[in-house]
Design a protein around this nucleic acid. Structure first.
Length: 291
DNA sequence: ACCGCACCCTGAGCGC
DNA sequence: TGCGCTCAGGGTGCGG
């Protein structure tokens, strides 16, 4: 689900609930590979500590804790980090949704997919981390502890330059879309914004990266920055699971030009948008506008 | 070093 | 109703 704009929106809106507050109690589901730090250790490490900062690194959120330790969060495909006072149908299963009266709002109650509950001091709402598919990650890092996942990340997508992308693509036979999805090249890009940026730049996703010109790399980065910044402005894309911490939907799903628009007319030339698999991911493009 | 692929897991939506 | 299939904003680790 969440790419750079959704993670950044989450960071901005969860910050006031989390930063400056003390974690009084931690509740978790049972151990699974979702917990890179086992639940019991996590509880011991977090309880009693104050949260001092919350940063985004690629698609990771990194909370700085009192004493210099850090809490790493990754939302995976279906992760939702939100306030306990949020109301959104996206937090409910289809069965529960169907049982709701029209316009009925229901405050979220932790369910079997709510893997982490942070109970904070100060009497405000709690912070919940829910993740149906469990592709998300939670990890506690001791003060000064390095982390391979963070160290692997390349330039943040918002900072990537045409020159940097061009250099990374030299001699590569994989696709340009594959390069954009590679977190060691453009940290934060995922399937939606890779497709959107390549459409804006007029470059076919399946083009061999090594054959993309310097000028095209400039256009791709420019397009990437534009779609990412605009998506942050609108609160990200809510397509199936994503909700912001207050429960609100994002707005960028209404501005997509190609992603999920298979068969619909290209907004520039009217040609039906094509879908095929590129870099093992569902890929959308206009065969007329993109070369 | 690089590339493609299997795999991690759950649920929704579809055709039959 | 139910079964079987496909699909889904991500990332890792393996073999060739």
């Amino acid at each position: 689900m969440p790419e750079l704009p959704e993670v950044e929106t989450t960071r901005r809106r969860i910050t006031p609930l989390l930063v400056g507050r003390r974690i009084e109690k931690v509740e978790t589901t049972r151990a699974s590979y979702f917990f890179l730090t086992p639940p019991a250790d996590l509880k011991r490490a977090l309880e009693g500590r104050r949260v001092e900062s919350l940063e985004r690194v690629g698609k990771y959120l990194v909370a700085g804790l009192e004493g210099g330790s850090r809490l790493l969060l990754h939302l995976g495909m279906t992760g939702q980090l939100f306030s306990s006072s949020a109301t959104s149908v996206r937090l409910l299963s289809a069965t529960v949704r169907a049982s709701l009266a029209p316009d009925e709002q229901r405050v979220f109650e932790p369910d079997l997919h709510t893997h982490l509950q942070l109970h904070l001091d100060g009497g405000g709402p709690q912070v919940f981390f829910r993740d149906v598919r469990k592709f998300g990650k939670v990890q506690w890092l001791a003060p000064g502890e390095q982390n391979a996942r963070l160290d692997r990340l390349g330039t943040d997508a918002l900072e990537l330059t045409g020159e940097g992308l061009f250099r990374a693509c030299r001699g590569r036979r994989a696709t340009i879309k594959g390069m954009l999805l590679d977190q060691s090249i453009a940290a934060g890009v995922g399937n939606i914004y890779a497709d959107e940026a390549l459409f804006v730049a007029g470059v076919r996703p399946a083009r061999a990266a090594g054959r993309v010109t310097r000028r095209e790399c400039d256009a791709i980065c420019d397009g990437l920055h534009r779609v990412l910044l605009r998506s942050i402005e609108t609160g990200g894309s809510s397509i199936s699971d994503y909700v912001s911490p207050d429960g609100a939907d994002g707005g960028y799903q209404d501005e997509r030009k190609v992603y999920g628009r298979t068969g619909e007319p290209c907004l520039v030339c009217g040609t039906p948008i094509k879908r095929r698999i590129v870099a093992q991911r569902s890929t959308h493009y206009c065969a007329d506008c993109q070369r």
